[in-house]
């Protein structure tokens, strides 16, 4: 465990909690893509099946459980409790265009052709693109609430910190996982445009709105 990995995990946790609190406090999930949140719930479910097969550390187990629980709570709030506020008309990204190719790729390119390993690979690939429905929704409506941009910032920062963590681990531990690194690079690149808008607009106190 190095500082980049730890801050990456905490940044991920911050993103998840910010989103939950935003929905809970405002009693509304307006502007949030339920499809992205469903994909993240699927990501955590397929990745953390090793909770049943191996124990790594108390930290590892508790963080996994927290991520899974929070992602299901978010999906519940969007599709059940605050369904009336869900902006389904703008959440029109076709998720099958992500899930099907990612599913195929995880069968073709993986570390080991075993069920758990394929599901783990699937979750890594899917996570890298799971934010697309959310970004698509923002590009469609042309704006995002400031709190939603904080959520996206921490979510993007998390994988960027993981990239530094992997460079660190490569040099100091000889650890290198090509699948995770390539997917992590793709994931981080998807946020670059958003990072630019976040720094140039949101951090200067302006609302994130895209030119018409």
């Amino acid at each position: 465990m190095n500082i980049f990995r730890l801050t990456g995990d905490l940044s991920h946790l911050a993103a998840i909690i910010i989103l939950l609190l935003k929905i809970w406090k405002t009693r509304s999930c307006a502007g949030i893509s339920g499809k992205s949140q469903l994909l993240f719930a699927l990501v955590f479910t397929t990745r953390y099946l090793d909770l049943f097969t191996s124990f790594i550390s108390l930290y590892n187990t508790s963080m996994k459980l927290i991520y899974v629980a929070c992602s299901y709570a978010t999906v519940y709030l969007i599709y059940m409790k605050f369904k009336a506020t869900y902006d389904g008309n703008h959440d029109t990204f076709r998720v099958e265009f992500l899930v099907v190719p990612v599913g195929g790729l995880s069968f073709l390119v993986n570390h080991d052709f075993s069920p758990l390993e394929i599901l783990w690979t699937f979750s890594i690939y899917l996570e890298s693109v799971a934010i697309l429905p959310q970004l698509f929704m923002i590009s469609k409506t042309g704006e995002a609430e400031t709190i939603t941009t904080h959520y996206l910032f921490f979510l993007g920062l998390y994988r960027a910190l993981y990239l530094i963590n992997w460079i660190w681990r490569y040099y100091f531990e000889g650890f290198f996982d090509l699948i995770a690194v390539v997917a992590g690079v793709v994931q981080t690149i998807l946020y670059c445009d958003f990072f630019y808008l976040y720094v140039t607009k949101v951090l200067k106190g302006k609302k994130l709105s895209l030119p018409a």
Partner: peptide, 10 residues
């Protein structure tokens, strides 16, 4: 053990 290594990350 190699297969388990990446599972220490989240």
């Amino acid at each position: 053990e190699d297969q388990k290594i990446h599972k220490d990350e989240l």
